[in-house]
Computed example of a mutant assay.
Amino acid sequence: MTNIEHVQLQQVIVHKVGNPTRGEQLKLSVNPLTLNDELVKSMLTKYFLSPFNENEHYHFTHLSDVGLNEVYNYVKAIFDNSKSFTQQSALVANFLYNKSTHVKVKEGELYVAHFADVPFGNDFINAVGLFKSETKETFLKVFEHGESWEVVGEEGININKLDKGCLIFNAGQEEGYVVCVVDATNKNQDAQYWVNDFLQVTPYADSYHNTHKYMDMCRLFITNDYADKFEVTKTDQIDLLNRSADYFKTKEQFSLDEFTQEVMHHPEVVDSFVQFKKNYEVAKQFDLDNEFDIDLAAVKKQAKVFKTVLKLDKNFHIYIHGRRDLIEKGYDEASGKKFYKLFFEEES
């Protein structure tokens, strides 16, 4: 998140949350932190807010009624009455403790924070943050000892690495608020209890979400299913990645029919892609629209992970930006090695 220099950190309280299946305890603080040191307040604000992508929005959900979502209710009570902050933070910690039963869930500190003047669109509003620190690092502390200097190791938190976070803006209450989420420790593992079990949030079906998820789905399809189901070379994969990325970069609106016709071309590839989309939606537990406005911020972020580099042994990396027809692959019988021919007009 950017433009956080004027954010006011109003209250912060820390609770220790363990994993009950390992006999670890829940230890609740009686009082919030004393925030007299402006440097500490600034460091905490940076630690809490910097990792968030303010363009990627979620909202609280529930199978029957969002009003029954536990975290939603605790946060709403804080927004309604800031004097209930400590009481509601304890309820948040207790609920997280009850959801921390997966074998991979680590013990850590839960920070509950109340902010004012948080940037939100063109406005500045209140927000509540929930942050969990699970990873400890060892730091060296140098101190003066008599006429000499000594060094000791101390365990602490790296303020540049937030493990888990949730920032709830005081906006969109009826739809489950506007929420930003960070989960840096369990992106590809089963222990996604933070998002699924504890917060129970789902992405807003907006242009950013659709653009981001469609590009992610395209990348996965091309690098996995496309290569497995069809006889294609690495350059064919890179060419399809380039054409997919170019579609999102040059179009203002996405249409699934137009995209498959212009990018995929072949009917069998289109059918495979459509089936992959259905499987992707089931696995991710959300639906993707077939038509939407393309979000440039999402395109810029996703374009960074579109790998269009052809790696040849450990000797050469060829960056391919387009024109698959100017690349020719062959085999040299004399040397027993494969080769590529690259056709170009000028060298720069």
Rank of each mutant, 00 (worst) to 15 (best):
E281G: 07
F79T: 01
I327E: 02
H212S: 09
L241V: 09
I125M: 01
T135M: 04
G336E: 07
E268Q: 15
F259N: 01
V269W: 08
A283G: 00
E281V: 09
K277Y: 06
W194T: 11
V40S: 14
T260Y: 00
K249S: 09
V201W: 05
S82G: 03
Y72F: 11
N55R: 10
E155G: 14
V263W: 03
D123I: 11
Q88P: 00
Y208F: 15
S84V: 14
L26W: 06
Q173M: 11
Q237A: 00
F95R: 14
A116Y: 08
F292D: 02
D287M: 08
G165F: 05
F286S: 04
P51M: 12
P32C: 07
T235C: 00
P267H: 13
E268W: 03
L96G: 02
K304P: 01
Y331A: 02
T2G: 15
L162F: 06
K278E: 13
H114Q: 04
Q285K: 12
D271I: 04
V17A: 07
I13D: 08
Q25Y: 13
P51A: 14
L342R: 00
H57E: 11
K278W: 08
F79K: 05
T45G: 15
F120R: 08
D163M: 07
S64E: 02
K341W: 04
E144R: 14
E258T: 13
L49Y: 02
K277Q: 09
V7E: 03
H265V: 15
N186K: 05
S29M: 12
Q237L: 06
E346T: 06
G146D: 12
V274I: 15
N122G: 01
Q173G: 10
V151F: 04
Q88A: 10
I318T: 04
D236K: 05
V305A: 02
T235L: 04
E155Y: 12
F316E: 06
H102S: 15
G108C: 08
V66W: 00
G165K: 05
Y204F: 13
S82M: 04
E231G: 14
K104M: 11
T135W: 00
N188P: 00
F139R: 00
T202P: 03
V232L: 05
D197L: 15
Y280D: 08
E24M: 14
K301A: 05
L28C: 01
E174I: 09
K99D: 07
P203C: 15
D228A: 11
K99N: 13
D257C: 10
A171K: 13
T86H: 01
F52S: 10
Y97P: 01
Q11C: 08
H321N: 09
G23C: 13
V309G: 13
G129H: 01
F306H: 04
A227F: 03
K99Q: 13
K161C: 10
K187S: 06
F95E: 12
R243K: 13
L33T: 08
S100D: 06
V14K: 12
E56C: 10
L110K: 04
N224L: 06
G67A: 05
V75D: 00
T185R: 06
V7F: 06
N315V: 01
Q192Y: 02
M217N: 10
N55M: 11
R323L: 13
N122L: 02
Y226H: 01
V14L: 15
I318D: 00
A93S: 04
V17K: 00
D183G: 05
K187G: 11
D80H: 02
Y226C: 03
T233A: 06
K141V: 14
E268K: 15
